[in-house]
């Protein structure tokens, strides 16, 4: 199954829309609710990151029998120092983002902790790409 969703930078009212749609789909397909929760939490944090930092983004989801692959590609300022951005507590988020209940420098580590495989690449002035994979137990 293949799904794509657009994310608009700065629009907090829609942050979580893609994760919500994915959760509805996964609940029909997967009985292990921990896998569903981990995957949607990872995507939700990633969506919030795009809304908080980028101008626009796209979420591409591919659900296969053995894995769920999610790519989140954004056009935005990019990340200068990825290892620094991965540190818990490091954040460049605005006051507005903090008022939304985020921006404490936990997003990227939350995403990593909730995925089986996590890749991040970024180019300053261009944008950031994330790849999140959740492996499914085959019966």
């Amino acid at each position: 199954m293949h799904f794509e969703y657009n994310i608009e930078g700065g629009d907090f009212s829609k942050a979580g829309f893609a994760s919500s749609q994915l959760k509805k789909v996964l609940k029909q397909l997967i009985t292990d609710h921990k896998v569903v929760k981990r995957t949607v939490v990872a995507l939700y944090e990633a969506e919030v990151n795009v809304v908080a930092h980028a101008y626009l983004g796209v979420v591409i989801i591919d659900i296969d029998t053995d894995k769920i692959k999610i790519q989140i590609n954004d056009k935005g300022p990019g990340i200068e120092d990825i290892s620094k951005a991965m540190e818990e507590g490091f954040s460049t988020a605005s006051e507005k983002v903090r008022e939304m209940g985020f921006g404490a420098g936990m997003g990227l580590s939350n995403i990593k902790n909730n995925s089986d495989d996590f890749k991040i690449t970024s180019e300053v002035g261009v944008g950031t790409k994330l790849e999140i994979i959740a492996y499914l137990k085959t019966i």
Binding site: S13, A15, G16, S19, V41, V48, G101, F102, M106
Partner: peptide, 29 residues
């Protein structure tokens, strides 16, 4: 909300002073 999103317990009640849509989304996820 990032702290809430780290929890893996079930049947949890959240007490917050953050009244916005993200609190609801966080609960959903």
């Amino acid at each position: 909300m990032s702290d809430v999103l780290t929890l893996d317990s079930d049947n949890v009640l959240l007490i917050t002073g953050l009244a916005n849509l993200q609190a609801i989304r966080t609960a959903e996820m």
